[in-house]
Design a protein around this nucleic acid. Sequence first.
DNA 1: AAAAGCACTTTCCTTTTGGAAACTGCTATA
DNA 2: TATAGCAGTTTCCAAAAGGAAAGTGCTTTT
Lengths: 115, 115
Amino acid sequence: MATKKTYLSCLDSVKPVRDTLDVINGKWKLPIIISVGVGNERFTDIEESIPGITPKAMAKELKELEQQKLIERIVTNDYPVKITYKWTPYANTLTPIIDALKEWGIKHREEIFKK
Amino acid sequence: MATKKTYLSCLDSVKPVRDTLDVINGKWKLPIIISVGVGNERFTDIEESIPGITPKAMAKELKELEQQKLIERIVTNDYPVKITYKWTPYANTLTPIIDALKEWGIKHREEIFKK
DNA sequence: AAAAGCACTTTCCTTTTGGAAACTGCTATA
DNA sequence: TATAGCAGTTTCCAAAAGGAAAGTGCTTTT
């Protein structure tokens, strides 16, 4: 009889982690979420607050974040038309992730300079 | 006088978050870390425990995780030579991140099915 | 002797990501 | 009237990521 499946299953963790990564992956999604989170609402303000981002990346990522209901695009029909971006309530659920990533990044930088 | 810098700075958060993302980015790094974390030690065991991964991706990501001192590659000079992969102590510092991503993934899936 | 297991590597190819630069159409300000 | 600001779009291109499939060299099991 063939011996099989010597490995241990880790799908309980891997699957939900991958579901999350599918939403927040990429270089720019979390920086944009953070920038909007601190109060930047206008396209150019968000853009200028994130060093290195291009308007092309901005537009693409903002569209995806809108579809995922994490960022809301609001058009006010005053003169002139004003476009603002805001967190949806659902974006708040990401704060534990952002905090964990931020804390690790700070410690990691210390760790690197220590050596 | 020109009015400038209407945006709010978010570099305090964006920079460390990006430092972290530079380490754990990509589709496979966290799944591999999780798999090794639950006790898979052999190349093929890790590979089989992560649906969809190829040996090519495995080899590349394992090398990077080794360089980053998150996974240790251990060669035992018995007959036959045995190669095992293990968490370094530093990998333990990632658990808050993994937990946060896992929890969000579980809730997100519920959220999607609710609608 | 043949087949299977282990730990990978190699080749080929497609898709995705990323960046630079210029451009658009509208409005507001100097 | 010219310039600047806003919210993007478009083009071009290079680099990176991702996947399928086959191969390698060694060992162990049947």
